[in-house]
Design a protein around this nucleic acid. Sequence first.
DNA 1: CTGAAAGCGCTTACAG
DNA 2: CTGAAAGCGCTTACAG
Lengths: 350, 350
Amino acid sequence: MKRQRMNDQGGTVTIHDVARHAGVSSMTVSRVINKNVNVREPLREKVMASIKALKYTMNMAARSTRAGMGGVRIGVLYSHPSASYLNEIMLGGLDQAARLGAQLLLEKCGGLQSQKNAVNRLVEAGVDGVILPPPLCDSAPTVQMLTRVGIPVLALATARPLPEVSAVRIDDFQGALALTRHLIKLGHKRIGFIKGNPTHTPTEVRYEGFLKGLSEAGIALDEALVVQGQFTYKSGLETGRELLDRKDPPTAIFASNDDMAAGVMAVAHGLKISIPEQLSVCGFDDTPVASTIWPQLTTVHQPIVAMGRSSVSTIFERIKELKSGEPSRPAHQLMKFTLMDRDSTGPAPE
Amino acid sequence: MKRQRMNDQGGTVTIHDVARHAGVSSMTVSRVINKNVNVREPLREKVMASIKALKYTMNMAARSTRAGMGGVRIGVLYSHPSASYLNEIMLGGLDQAARLGAQLLLEKCGGLQSQKNAVNRLVEAGVDGVILPPPLCDSAPTVQMLTRVGIPVLALATARPLPEVSAVRIDDFQGALALTRHLIKLGHKRIGFIKGNPTHTPTEVRYEGFLKGLSEAGIALDEALVVQGQFTYKSGLETGRELLDRKDPPTAIFASNDDMAAGVMAVAHGLKISIPEQLSVCGFDDTPVASTIWPQLTTVHQPIVAMGRSSVSTIFERIKELKSGEPSRPAHQLMKFTLMDRDSTGPAPE
DNA sequence: CTGAAAGCGCTTACAG
DNA sequence: CTGAAAGCGCTTACAG
């Protein structure tokens, strides 16, 4: 009913209750909690036992006051991400923020002027750092505006990380390569490719991975099967129709993200082309739509929840270093992707 | 660059800096900040001036320690909402949480067992209250699990609020009625209706609004044009095809939410039926997909961001009352909806 | 490696 | 109506 358990007096269980229970000083408890090395094993164990017995949980607010890390505020600024993508980020991000006692502020923006306003709002709100999910992770103006006022930035899921900006991402090239190999192994030779929005860095990198997959299998690129999408459902609809209306349609379509793949599948449904018997479709990202649509989509899974979590802790560390005047460098973290082999891909038709 | 501005010593501006600047005690500053009545106008003005001059902002973490309101934690538990819907909720909710110095915890779940686990995780994490976005807002088991352990619940966007549970919502009946009137005014008489998931409360209520619209215009209900959807894109695809494959298809389709409307439009595209010339389509909710798809969707706008904000402050008040032992009753708030007349609806064809 | 003291920024409870 | 004192739960900095 209350967050912290009650002690004998009916109050919240504090570090001091634990100390009394374990027969040590509060400082020792504090050290144990903070995984400080300077505590001998027997003491540490006693303290851990008392923590369990009393069901102690730390009061983050109290820690914040003293630690100077007082209420770190981290902004999450987004423009037009995949909605579900953002949810997953927040799922991991909020969890990590709660652990660290940090506040997350969501801010939305559109065009360039709107980006400026949003940055100003964040600065006014006093954020100590900002996470930029795609596509804003690749917006040079936004990164610069923030950097110029001394706010550290983290680019989430950019495909071309900058050395001077922290980043958390997967290897888009290897992901696209793995997907292409998968299609080729299924016997597909005429593979359509739908590129994403040209201003997003994953667009080119995923395409490069696709090209690599073709060339290593000795398949010549048919440029007529490469079409320009925008990462949107609508562009999937349009380019899907373009590809499928051909007299010699491809047997497989690699859409650079799930939303476009969903658009392709809608067109195929409309044309009564059965998936995967007559056409294989794959996407990229493994957003919830991938397992919502029918048949479920073969795609590359980005560990988005974990990436959200990691983004928060990475930028938190950076903020801490900056505040305490320690030397601090942007951090770069590469996460593992997974090829999700589901029902939208199958052997190439005869 | 730092959240709080610097004082002369280069430290953070505190209540004491303001007090010194204004020539009063820190207590008076505290009273002004907290809008306590017991401060005379001249003093209050002096303090307000100093706050502005020094750009003071309160350290929420510090307040929390002493105020007993220590780090209120509010859970947001969701299962399968529209992803973008959830984003909007978080947009408003996080903003309000930051103002109040509360932590928001996002938790995701699926089936009933998974709901139990999620509730346990939230209880373990020590939440003081839980917001339930749709469809969980109508899950009796979840509400009960929470209520039983004494955690106050807020049902967000339920169509049938319970007296014993707080709620923030719009009037789904009036919304559906407004949309139906709109279609009828455009000359439509054969209107298809796609119901939503039967376990969600808005499903029936929106249908009732639709029926009311027909009856007040003296149009007889053609039950063959009422089909059962699930609020999913996929069900929009299926029911849309069902409706449009008829020899006497409707001239307008009222889908109970935007996702299903998007599905209907995809089918129409596939069938080369032009919207709105040959077919009018409308949705409900005005999630981002409504203005992303083409043509843009006529729908009922729920002020979701504001509802997220309101949910947080409403449950926060409730938590505060409960903690301080004040008498407390569930609060109910009705928000205004807006009919968004966009490009997916037009005059009925001859 | 362990602990006693002082303090983080704010508020409660007590005086005037 | 205003203020001086004590304390929230934790950590920093200083001793041993």
